[in-house]
Design a protein around this nucleic acid. Structure first.
Length: 261
DNA sequence: ATGGTTGTTGCACAA
């Protein structure tokens, strides 16, 4: 079962980018971030025409997440638990039943810039709620994938020029420590599971500005975390870097794992 | 050190 994460940066503006990649990559399950539309504006038909079931958790203008799946989606839940007053659409969960049941959690973690400030405070508070939910998912002892745009550069090797991110919310010690605390409970970072010793990269995001793609000035912020039961099933992993060179690209590229499930 | 881009929305802001 091939499961991917893709920050599409506006699903209506980039529907052809998305369907082109879906047709070529043939993932079984995809979590999308930054759909930037309410549920009723989501372009369902071109995606369902490719054989996908669709569950959305949208918001007007910003944020918004979704799950696409060729297999049935069960027990869908929307919104990160822990703060009923939080109206930002950044979290969706569902169970995919193939040979076995896999729990999928798709997330769009707050950017947090500028820091310091209220947006950074919201990011750190959101990460504390994420930690609680992540622990509960591990406690389920199911195979779980928690994947999406984490908006955290975990280590210096996750940026082409880490020193340029020193004042950015994505690379603050507090953001990095919060993600380490979550992962340390037992999650495997799929990219590092496969290649623990890379000295630089691989990257998943290149800014639209200042020729970042042409200079390979990227960062790795789109992560796939695997519960132990899911890590045992991992067969393959990939980052579809070539998508960044195509027409009308997102600033992020898809990251995927293939599971024996 | 600065400026560089894109989507959605409404004539700015978020990334």
């Amino acid at each position: 079962m091939k499961i991917a994460t893709f920050n599409i940066n506006g699903v209506r503006a980039r529907i052809e980018t998305l369907t082109g990649w879906l047709s070529q990559a043939q993932p079984d399950v995809v979590v999308l971030q930054e759909i930037k539309t309410q549920d009723e504006g989501f372009p369902r038909e071109p995606i369902s025409d490719l054989g996908y079931n669709i569950e959305t958790h949208g918001q007007k203008g910003f944020n918004g997440v979704a799950i696409l799946s060729k297999l049935p989606l069960e027990d869908v839940s929307r919104g990160l638990p822990g703060d009923d007053s939080d109206e930002q659409a950044r979290w969706i969960e569902a169970t995919v039943v193939g040979q076995r049941a896999i729990r999928i959690a798709g997330l769009y973690l707050p950017n947090g810039n500028p820091q310091p400030g209220p947006k950074f405070d919201y990011k750190l508070a959101w990460m504390e709620r994420l930690h609680r939910r992540a622990r509960a998912l591990l406690d389920s002892e199911m195979p779980v994938l928690m994947l999406g745009d984490y908006n955290v550069i975990l280590e210096p090797r996750d940026a082409a020029h880490p020193e340029r991110w020193s004042d950015d919310a994505l690379f603050q010690p507090e953001s990095r420590a919060a993600l380490r605390r979550i992962a340390f409970d037992g999650w495997a970072d799929a990219v590092r599971l496969r290649d623990p010793d890379a000295s630089r990269g691989p990257f998943t995001f290149w800014d639209y500005q200042a020729g970042a793609w042409q200079k390979d000035n990227g960062i790795r912020i789109d992560h796939i975390l695997l519960s132990p039961q899911a890590a045992d099933l991992m067969i393959d992993l990939g980052i579809d870097r070539d998508e960044r060179a195509k027409d009308k690209p997102s600033d992020h590229v898809p990251v995927w794992v293939d599971l024996d499930a």
